[in-house]
Amino acid sequence: MSNAMAVYACCVVVLFFKMLAISCYQGYYRLRYLVFINAEDAAVFGRVAQPAERPEVERATQAWRNDLESIPMFVALGGLAVSLEAYAAVTVWLCLVFTLARVLHTVTYLAGKQPWRTLSYGVGTLCLIVLAGLVISRVVVGWPT
C-alpha cells in the first residue's frame, strides 16, 4: 500500500470518528437534560416531546450538516487522487490539512468561535479545490506523477 493511501485511509477514519463524536455530543445533551423532540424518545424517559431541540443539539446538527457538504467530496476526490496516483506528496498534505481543518471547524463551530470557524472552513474548501485540480490534471494531462 502506498504512503498516500495509508494517509488517506487514516484521514477518512479520523473524519468518521469526528462525525461520531458530534452524534455523541448531541446524545449527551439530550440525555443530560432529558429533552427530546420525538414523542417515542421522550416517552422512554416519561417525558413529553418538546417543540425544539436544545441549542447545543441544534448547533451540533448544523456542524453535522456542514460535514455532509464537504466530507463526501473529500472521500471522493481524495480517493480519486490516490487511486490515480496524482502527485503523492501534495495529495498526502492535502488530506492531512483537510482533516485538521474539518476537526478545527467542528470544534470552533460547537464553541461559536469566529473567525476561526470560517477560516477552517475556507482551508478545507481550498484543499478540495486543489484535490479536484490534481485529479483533473492527472486525467486530462497525465501529470503530475
Score class of each variant (00 low, 15 high):
N3R: 11
V7Y: 00
V7R: 03
A9P: 05
C10H: 08
V13K: 06
F16D: 05
F17R: 03
L20N: 10
I22N: 01
S23F: 03
Y25I: 01
Y25E: 10
Y25V: 05
Q26A: 06
Y29L: 00
R30A: 07
L31R: 13
R32A: 15
F36Y: 14
A39Q: 14
Q50E: 15
E53V: 01
R54D: 03
P55R: 02
E56V: 09
V57W: 03
V57D: 08
E58P: 04
R59W: 00
W64I: 03
R65T: 09
P72E: 08
M73C: 11
V75E: 00
A76L: 15
G78L: 12
G79R: 10
L80E: 09
L84S: 07
E85F: 14
A86C: 08
A88S: 15
V92Q: 15
L100F: 14
T106P: 05
V107K: 07
V107W: 06
Y109V: 05
G112R: 00
K113I: 15
K113C: 12
R117N: 07
T118H: 04
S120I: 02
G122A: 15
G122H: 02
V123D: 05
G124R: 07
G124P: 07
T125P: 01
C127E: 12
I129W: 13
V130I: 15
L131P: 10
L131D: 10
A132M: 13
L134W: 01
R138L: 01
V141S: 07
P144M: 11
